[in-house]
Each structure stands twice: as structure tokens, then as C-alpha cells.
Nucleic acid binder design. Sequence first.
DNA 1: GTGAAAGCGCTAACAA
DNA 2: TTGTTAGCGCTTTCAC
Lengths: 335, 335
Amino acid sequence: MFKPTTIKDIAKALNLSTSTVSRALRGGYEISEETKKIVLEYAEKINFTRNPIALSLKERRSYSIGIIVCEVANVFFSQAIAGIESIAYNKGYHVVISQSHDQYEREVTNIQHLANRSVDGIIISLAAETKDYTHIEKLHEQGLPIVFFDRILESMQTHKVTSNNTQGAFEATEFLISKGCKKIAHLANAPQLSITKQRQIGYEDALKKHGIPVKNEYIKYCEHGGSEKGEVELAVKSLLNLPQKPDAIFVASDRLSMGCLAALKKYNTGADLVIAGFSNSDVVDLLKPSLSCVRQPAFEMGRIATEMLINLIESKYPVEEFETKMLNTTFQINE
Amino acid sequence: MFKPTTIKDIAKALNLSTSTVSRALRGGYEISEETKKIVLEYAEKINFTRNPIALSLKERRSYSIGIIVCEVANVFFSQAIAGIESIAYNKGYHVVISQSHDQYEREVTNIQHLANRSVDGIIISLAAETKDYTHIEKLHEQGLPIVFFDRILESMQTHKVTSNNTQGAFEATEFLISKGCKKIAHLANAPQLSITKQRQIGYEDALKKHGIPVKNEYIKYCEHGGSEKGEVELAVKSLLNLPQKPDAIFVASDRLSMGCLAALKKYNTGADLVIAGFSNSDVVDLLKPSLSCVRQPAFEMGRIATEMLINLIESKYPVEEFETKMLNTTFQINE
DNA sequence: GTGAAAGCGCTAACAA
DNA sequence: TTGTTAGCGCTTTCAC
């Protein structure tokens, strides 16, 4: 059995009390230099580390933070996680990653699991399926620090980090217009998501600015964010079958973009379509139907969200003032 | 402050002792049906969950397992993680993911962090940079259950899961030969990795079988697994600059494949090259220079590794017999 | 400067 | 069937 040493072992070996050892280890000022030295050297020698579990129980906190994203195999999220880790580890926090796979049920399970003091706070981007927020609201009311990023819950009073989705969508759509497209479709995420609304506004604003009417049949939502099998393909198919077939598609997310390209390939079409969409993928310029894309500063978003969360966690007083940071996107043309 | 309810609160509210509550919650047979019902209903009502930290301290285990992979943004690993989670959650284990980014230092830090009783066991695929294994060996000697998958440490006596790398590499290389290629280069991972050796054997076997001489200058290793900036590009460049420029490349990993294609694009060449390599990417058939690929059963590998680990963790007696499972790959032609 | 002891939330041996 | 209590490893107040 795996049985590491405890301060009790050290105390016994050194003929001291556990409290003296404990204080010596954390450099308590009341301990004589000599004792301190003896203890530290011995601890070093036997490669001692304090039991973090016991520490958590005692301190009622775990020095770890939980992340909930829909999936880690998405470049946007993996970059964000890298950003989160970069801050968290520096400040002495461990990071626990969990995936909702865009499913409501799994989001609920994961957040329950993470709360209950196995983490000190949570950074979350909502699942596409989530429409009921009581599981989060309850924990928040109980005092669990929560920071939203990307897919935020607007109604909740806490810190939030997003990119400028509206502006990004606007640029992408305007790019499609600049390529001479007039029948621009929009392949969107689940309609209740914050990012879906914001991106749709950017899309519509661009159309309006250039005098192109917004047509509802050109906007297709994917309720499951593209994680349901065949979901994206169906949406693309219905666009292709419209009497007025689109000449361009603005796609709202990375996952949808890949699904869209795959569908176009399957139906052996798309050569006459211009595609632009949100994506942080690094292989985007290797794709056959090229994909111009809106890039989000994922790493930076992760960093900021983590700083906000740790502020919340370490704040001595209940925080009353919350901020929502919005970061700029960039647009990358691939043709 | 975040302050969840404890069994003490329940005991007080229900006028019972904490032990009764504790037993009722875990369905102890000695508790009367009535008391059990009252307790369970009340717990349900106030949405009670036991404090896992206290539980861990008491039981000297955390019911969580640690995973160390080079990066989560790699489809092979994210699929493996999904496999790991599928078993772990069913058996009541939490999963803690951490990334080495193929760096030795981070692997050491992560494994230290995970051990020390914050996890009950570890599933690991080695970092490309790792050449010294004492950090793992020490923990293993102390009794921490460890299972290797993918990039395994052959010298360690424990369970291991791999795919049939040699066979996969053989098929890919034979495919290139079947396309009429005779000057087949091999873009490989760090040379000390188990997978590198196995895949190289498959590559060489295929060449030999077809009477093609193995040339050392056609084999390029990437010490950092392609995670160092410019590493892959440099390797590809040196292949392209050979007096006898290759007519095909067999690439040893997903990351290297993407780097390779990017490099070919950058040098505006590759149309005359046939590429095949290991990849679990789902966008592989959308790539411009097409990439035929060896698919590994990542999800299944994750499942098996987890079953093995949990067996190790829950075994009453020290396990002496270890097994190495090897799963078959499949080959997917894209042209 | 050091030690004894209580307590964090939970379980389990022992009592009743 | 239920309650009392000690103890998991650590920190911290209070004595000395």
C-alpha cells in the first residue's frame, strides 16, 4: 500500500511534538532556528510533503479550481485551459478539468462533483444543451465562486470573460460580402447560448449595413452544438436544398465549421460557396475548402478568467462589484 | 463563504447521532427502514452530498485517478481520455487530467502533484522529452499504482496498453510502396520513446519485405515530439533538401503529420509526395495534401488502461503478474 | 520556544 | 437499532 510519511513520523523520529514539526515546516517564527533546521533537513532527507487532503479538510479549501468546458479536444478550449493553467499553477492552485460534452446532464453531474469543497471555485463555459441554470445558481448562492467565460450566463451576478463575438461575426460576414456574396447563410449554435445571440447580431448588423435583407430560412441552429451525430450535416443539407441556395456560409463555431466542411465534402459541393467562421484550429489553412476565420484570444481569456476567479476565492469580503471583460477577436483570411 | 451542510447538521435537525446518519446514508443494514427513510429524504431535500475530502482523509484514498498525457488538444489523447472517463465514472472514480506538453519538467511536477494521495493511481503516456524515469520509479516503489498506455516504460513491471504500432507502421509503409513510392522517408518522434522504436521497426520491415534498402538519412527524429517551435519544419526541410528527395513520407504521429503538412504547404511543395501517418484526427479527410492514416483504438485503450488501474488500486494483495495489452490499428486511405 | 489538545467531516469499533 | 468515541493528518489556540 502507498503510505507516505506524516508529521507524526517526523515528530517521533526527532523527539518533538507534531505541533513543533508543523510550525517548523511552515517556517513559524516562534520556532528556534536550530529546531527549524533539524526538522527541515530531516523532512528534506525523507522527501516529505504534507498531505494535501488533510490540509484541505483543515483549511476548508483545496487550492484547486475546477474547469467545465464542453470538450478539451477543441482548440479554443485547450488554449483557454493552457491560459488557465498558466495562472493557476503560479498562484499555487491545481486545475481539475472536466467535460460536459455539451450535455446538460453531464454538466450538472460535473459541477456537483467539483463543488462540495473539492474545488475552491469554478470556471465554466456552458453546455449547448443547458437551458436550466438552477444547478449553477444554487451553488453560487451558497457562496461558491464562479467565473463564466465564452458561453456566459448573463443573468448571474459574477465575473465574466468573453471575446467580442458581435464584432467578430460582423467582420466575418462583411468579409463574405466583400467577396461578392449576397445570399449568406448562418450556421449557428444552440439558440439560447450567449455566444449564439451575440454572433447572430454581428451577422445581421453586417447584412443590414450593406442593405442585404436578413432571411430567417438562412439561419440554422444546432441545438447540441454539433455534438449530436448528423446534426450539422442535416443543417447544411437543408441550406443546400433551399430554393435560393446560399452562396456563402458564416459558421458560428469550430466544431460546426468542421462539420460543415465535412458535409459539403460528402455532398460533393461547396466549390461555389465561400465559408467563414469562428475557429482557433491550427490546421485551418490546410483544409481543402478553405476557411477564413475569426480567432479568439483563448489563452488570454483563460488567464483573465483565472485571475478573476482567484480574486473571488481569496477576497476577504464578499465581492459585490463584478466585471465583464470583452476581448477583441482577429480575422484571418485563407483562400 | 461556501459552507455546505454536514452530517452533523442533519443529525442535529433530525435529532439523531452522526453515526446513525452516516450509516443511513450509506444504507447500512443495521439501520431501521424508517430512520433510513427519514434521513435519506431529508438529505435529498437539502441536496446533501458527503464531503469527499473528509472521506479521503478517513479512507486514505481519494477515489480519483490521475492522467498524464502530453496534451489534451490531440485527438488521440482526448479520445483516450473519453475512454478513461467512461470506466472511471462508472466505478465511482473522479478523473484528474494534466498535461506534460511533452516536457520532462512538467511531467515531473505533475506526477508529484498527483501522487501524495491526491489520486489513488496514475495512467500515463510519457513525455517526448523524458529520458530519466526515477520520478516515476520512486512512486511506483512506494506502492502507487501506475498504468502506462501509448508511450510506455518497458522496463517497469506494471500493466501496459499499446496499439500494435509495428503492424500499423508496416501497413502504412506498405501502402506507400503500393502507390509506387520507392524513396520513403520516415518522420519520427523522440528516439527513446517506445512508440518510436516500434513504429520504426514496422517501417523498416515493410521496406525490407519489398527489397527497398533502409537509409538512415531518410529517418528524421523530432526530440520534442513536434512541440518545439519549428522543429518539424526543420526536419521536413532537411528531407526535401536531400540529394535524393523522397517521394513519400511515413509520419509517426498526429502532431508531426500536421506539422509536416504545414511545412510542405509553406515550401509550396508536396504535390509529388505521398504522405501517410499515425493520426486519429477527424478532419484528416478535409486536408489538402491528403493524408492516409493509421488509426489507433484510443477510446478502447483508455478503457482498458482504466480497468487495469482500478484492478491494481482495489486489489487486496500486492499484484505480481502484469500484462501488456496490444490493440490492433486500422488503416484509412484518403486520396 | 515547545507541547497538549481540540477540531475540520467522516467512518467504524465498541457500548448500550 | 442507535449512540459514543477515537482517529484519519494537519493546524492552531492555549498553557507552560
